[in-house]
Design a protein around this nucleic acid. Structure first.
Lengths: 211, 211
DNA sequence: CATTTTCCATACGGTTGCGTATTGACATTC
DNA sequence: GAATGTCAATACGCAACCGTATGGAAAATG
């Protein structure tokens, strides 16, 4: 019952694997290469064992992926609860969310790759649930600062689209998801554009409409 | 030399296939299932032939995908040139771009799936080029309406992120990419948020900073 | 210390999909 | 109309993976 070693090729403390080891290694693959790249024998090799081990812990490949995604979702919720939902002021809460979105967490990479491999029903199911959950969080924030339900719905969709788009853009342009000063500046810019009282929406709209 | 039939299972007018037929069928697969789902024999079946035909027109699978993406990019540029770049007023040009982004073109689906399958170098290469090209377009628009280069860079990245994010969001939430009244309304909302004179940026920023 | 449980290695069968080799039908050209 | 070129069917080898079957080593259990 004493299994805490996280490193992959560490046979100093651990003699046998448990499902958690497989799930973490799987999430690593999903984050970098997507769900379709999850191959039992490949991950087994990473863990220093063979297939025989895998099929003792899991019934099949799908079982592994579902378990890994479940773990991902749980961990992700934990972070959001601790760092975002705990902020009482809605403006600050929104800003915190934007800042968190720009940090190079593995969780973000996983979310981004899931958007790709959503052909599989068990992936799209999780993805949809997580997305709706997060949209509701954002919508609530915007309603807290005075947006109507309709306004808040649209604004949260916009804000969340920025998040999703940003994940892809960074990987597309820089090949990876890293954090630097430019990004901090960009996050400030985005926050300035997307976090403001509801009144300024109609002002901006009129500005454009009258053009 | 008389080959213009586009329909897939139409053996009334066409007796033999050409590379274009294969490329179009491939783009259809990429749009709906991603690059990794491109299988020679499967597409052959769709076209009503076998592999034997394929390896006469193309050297291998990668060759097919590269050719298909090249065609996609060419067609896409044609549409953007005709419908967006031709608009002289920068505000209207931006708005046109947003409206175009919401239309259910196959081209958008392809772009979205490419974001997924960018493990392959020949995919990420095209993807990066296209993305940079489009970002430059947007940046120029924003500079045309008075943004500084830095502001325009950030704002175009923001706007383009919204586009990319939106593509994924609709597929994630609705399972497909369709056009309805809600979307029109949303596009109006987005345009109102992201298209405005440069001055209002600092105003909004101050609003948030002072909170 | 004997036995059971835990965890894994090895070997096998089955499927999918790529690419090649060979042959053939049909049209074009000389 | 014989030779050549175009396009496609068929058969094959090969590699990657999945999942199963089976046996074995080490640890826990009695």
């Amino acid at each position: 019952m004493m299994k805490q070693s996280k490193s992959v090729n560490d046979n100093t403390k651990k003699k046998s694997l448990n499902p958690k080891d497989w799930e973490l290694a799987t999430l690593e693959v999903i984050a970098n290469q997507g769900v379709s790249a999850v191959a039992v024998e490949t991950i087994a090799k990473v863990l220093g064992v063979t297939k025989g081990s895998f099929y003792w812990h899991f019934t099949n490949r799908k079982d592994l992926i579902v378990a890994a995604l479940k773990r991902w979702r749980k961990e992700d919720n934990k972070v959001i609860s601790k760092r975002v939902l705990s902020v009482s002021d809605p403006y600050e809460r929104l800003k915190t969310w934007f800042l968190l979105s720009s940090e190079p967490f593995q969780s973000h990479l996983i979310y981004a790759t899931l958007l790709a491999d959503r052909q599989h029903s068990y992936v799209s199911k999780v993805l949809k649930e997580v997305t709706i959950e997060r949209l509701n969080h954002l919508q609530q924030c915007y309603q807290d600062i005075g947006y109507t339900e309709t306004q808040a719905k649209q604004q949260s969709l916009l804000a969340y689209s920025v998040y999703v788009g940003y994940l892809h853009m960074t990987k597309t342009l820089h090949g990876q998801f890293k954090h630097d000063d430019n990004i901090d500046q960009y996050v400030q810019h985005v926050a300035g554009q997307l976090i403001h009282p509801p009144e300024s929406i109609s002002i901006n709209l009129n500005t454009v409409e009258s053009e």
